[in-house]
Structure formats: C-alpha cells, structure tokens
C-alpha cells in the first residue's frame, strides 16, 4: 500500500468530531476517489493528510512508514495537495507559483524536467509564465494549482474538489488531465462532490458521510450502487419512491 490511513479521528475543538475512525488505502498507480456531500469531512481529511490538522488518534503511513503530522514533512514524504479553491498566490507570477511547488527539491535538472511535463500537460501555462497568477481564468488557475503540486514530484497527488466552480467543458478537461497524470505514474487521491466524474475515472472509491466511511468499492460498482445513485448522482428512483408513498396512503 502506498498511502494508508488507519483509524483517523479528527476534532474541531472538543465538540465537533469531524473524522470518525477513518481507514483506507491507496495502492501505487491507483486513482482513488472519495465522494461525499458538503460537510462530510472531505476537506478535513485532505488537511489532515498534509499535516495541517493534527489527528487526535490514528496514523498516516507512506509505504508503511508513519508520517508525523507536520506539513513540510508530509511534502518530503511525497504527498502534494491541490487544495479546494486552489489557493494560488495571485500577486506572484505563474513561474513563481510553480517554483514554490518545488521548494524542497535540490535537483535543479529534475525540476526543469518536471516543469516541461507540466507545460506539456497544460501548454497555456507556458505562455503565461510571467503573468500574475491572479490574472488567469478560473480554469487556468486550476491547471496552475495542479501544476504547482506536481512540481514537488509527489508520490501521491491529493486533489480537493478540482471541479469546483468550473464550467462543464473545463471540468472534463481537468478530469482528463488527472487521468493523464495517473497514467504517467503518479498516484491520485481525489475528493469530489461531483460524484459522477469522480467515480468514472476512479479504480476504487469510498463514500464519506458525516465523517465516516460508509461504503467502498470499485468506481464502476459504486456508479451502479442504488444508494450512491440516489444520494450522490441525483438519479433517485423517483417513480419507485412515489409509488411506495402512494401505496402507503391507500
């Protein structure tokens, strides 16, 4: 197992139990999606995986080695995060944003190679290198956020709601890019409200509900799961439910 999470419990203050005994794993080369509604704890999970939130109990392991929950140690261990709403540095140039992604790396040559990979994935970024990140369009900003995370040459790339606020055509483009990144060997852990797209590209997936993992399976299996279809894909069997209700009344 490349990344494994064991019995993670995360609290906000004393009262709010945001993640409850969350355990899961991501194999090398996999795309794993975690779907869930707003407030299910998806972003909390991401922030915990990069060490910004300290779990009350539980462990995060890379190839069996526990990672201390400190951000720069998580990056050093091979985790990179594309956060929700991107969190770029708008007053820095595209190039500077990318440079910061490679902050811990000393191999100048490797960094240049990875920059080329990012440009090949998102050619528009190469044209905009000396432009301020804040002047990019929403889609371009999402590409830059992904590119910035790739610059650390992560073993596993965490993506938090990459489709948020993007037009449908851009959403497709972003998901296509995620698949390209996966096929070039980077493991992907994707957290999404857009369950349809997330399940379609996932090898395996988990469903997170109020801080708990309630379902897991192959991406395709979950697409056909009636509970998932009703709760996350908006294709509830309205007719059946309606019929049941009428039956009860009669």
């Amino acid at each position: 197992m490349l990344l494994s999470v064991e019995g993670l419990n995360v609290f906000y203050g004393e009262a709010i139990h945001a993640l409850r005994d969350v355990s899961f794993g991501v194999e090398e080369g996999e795309i794993v999606s975690i779907i869930g509604a707003n407030g299910a704890g998806k972003s909390t999970l991401m922030w915990t995986l990069v060490g910004l939130l300290k779990p009350k109990s539980g462990r995060i392991l890379m190839r069996g080695k526990p990672i201390r929950p400190i951000p720069h140690l998580s990056v050093a261990a091979g985790i990179a995060l594309v956060p929700e709403r991107r969190r770029l540095f708008p007053h820095l140039t595209v190039r500077e944003n990318l440079i910061l992604g490679a902050y811990l790396r000393k191999d100048r040559k490797g960094v240049e190679e990875d920059a080329e990979l990012v440009y090949r994935l998102f050619p528009i970024l190469k044209e905009r290198l000396s432009q301020y990140a804040g002047t990019l369009s929403g889609g371009q900003q999402q590409m830059l956020a992904i590119g910035r995370a790739l610059m650390s040459r992560p073993k596993v790339l965490l993506l938090d709601e990459p489709s948020l606020g993007l037009a449908p055509v851009l959403v497709d483009q972003v998901f296509k890019a995620i698949q390209d990144i996966a096929s070039s060997g980077t493991t992907i852990l994707l957290v999404e409200q857009n369950a349809l797209e997330a399940l379609q590209i996932a090898h395996r997936a988990y469903v997170l509900e109020v801080g708990r993992i309630v379902l897991e399976g192959k991406g395709k299996e979950l697409l056909d799961n009636p509970i998932v279809r009703a709760a996350y894909l908006g294709v509830a069997q309205h007719t059946e439910i309606l019929l049941e209700r009428t039956d009860n009344k009669v």
């Binding site: 990069v50 910004l52 951000p71 720069h72 990056v75 050093a76 995060l81 956060p83 969190r87 540095f89 708008p90 007053h91 820095l92 500077e96 440079i99 910061l100 992604g101 902050y103 811990l104 910035r148 650390s152």
Partner: peptide, 23 residues
C-alpha cells in the same frame, strides 16, 4: 531566491506556503 519568493507568498497565505513544504 526561493526563500524570498516564499516570503512574498507567505505574505498572502502562510498556511498554503507550509503545504508546499516550507518550514
């Protein structure tokens, strides 16, 4: 310098700078 760029970035979002690996 990388440290300098990180200082300017931290002026906007310190948390994100740490998530990129900056101590």
């Amino acid at each position: 310098t990388k440290v300098g760029v990180a200082i300017r970035a931290a002026a906007h979002d310190m948390e994100m700078v740490s998530v990129l690996g900056v101590n």
